[in-house]
Amino acid sequence: MDLINEGKVKRVYADPESPKRVIIEFTDTITAGDGQKREEIEGKGLVTCDTSEFLLKYLQDKGVATHFIKRLEETRLLCRKVDIFPLEVVCRNFAAGSFCDRYGLKRGQLMSEPLIEFFLKDDSLHDPLLSADAIERLGIANPDEIAFMYSVTLSVNYYLRELLSQAGLRFVDFKLEFGKAEDGAILLADEISGDTIRVWDKDEDSLDKDIFRHDSGNVVEAYGRLLGRLKETNPDEIPVRTEFLTILVLPKDGIKNPPGEVTRKAMTRLGFEEVVEVRAGRIYRVKINRPISPDILNQLHEMNMKLLSNPIAEKTEVRLT
């Protein structure tokens, strides 16, 4: 097998059977602090591979589009080939780790809402925090892609949080990576395991990489316990999370818009003389019972063309909130 890429803890090989797929191998290496702290621990590759297989499959069953195809022998997963965005998408339910250091917060403080942050995936720069504008200006992703990753991350947070709560565990925070497949679809990629999520048992005992970061126990044994607890859950019982989409329909530029024009005149008559132009359109608020996915967006595009807008005279914009 041809090695395409070697990361800190995984190797990516070309799938000899298809250029659209890759084989991801989980190694026993564990690292922390931008790779400064590093060790080999036997069994670590297997347990993170098992956990990723379990969680990616679970999320896929809930409608999240992921790169996972199937489990292969040993510590390998067969996945769709994607171009990874150089981003770490972090979602936090409770304050922990670098977030506490950055803002001087107490560990374990609850967020009023899940908080999503984007970081540049670059150890040499120590993975700096990125604003949405910076992601766009750096040419990493466009606003639609950012909104998509944001929405999927919130869905993933919900489904993982509910699953972990069934197992009696507290979901503190996690990191996701996304990639673009050959057909342009954005897929949840990389892994989800004790290496990439923070999970607390009762008394705020970690079942994740913090054990390795702080040398506070046997990390592989803790990862194993996490997986064991996950396997006792019943994913079918977790209710579907509804998502909202907003579709804006506006008259195309350059086309006369009489409803907007009479509105402008009325506004002027009422004394709002600064109004130069009004364009009147429509807004649709759509509730769906699946996470946003490339398939959902394609269907929405079709609906936009066939029904919600008249492409001869109108343009549309989809907002994933």
Binding site: P258, E261, I312
Partner: peptide, 16 residues
């Protein structure tokens, strides 16, 4: 026109 059997679209009257 909406079903595509005839070309074009019928927009709001200019007078609204």
């Amino acid at each position: 026109a909406e079903s595509g059997h005839l070309p074009g679209a019928l927009l709001t009257n200019e007078s609204a």
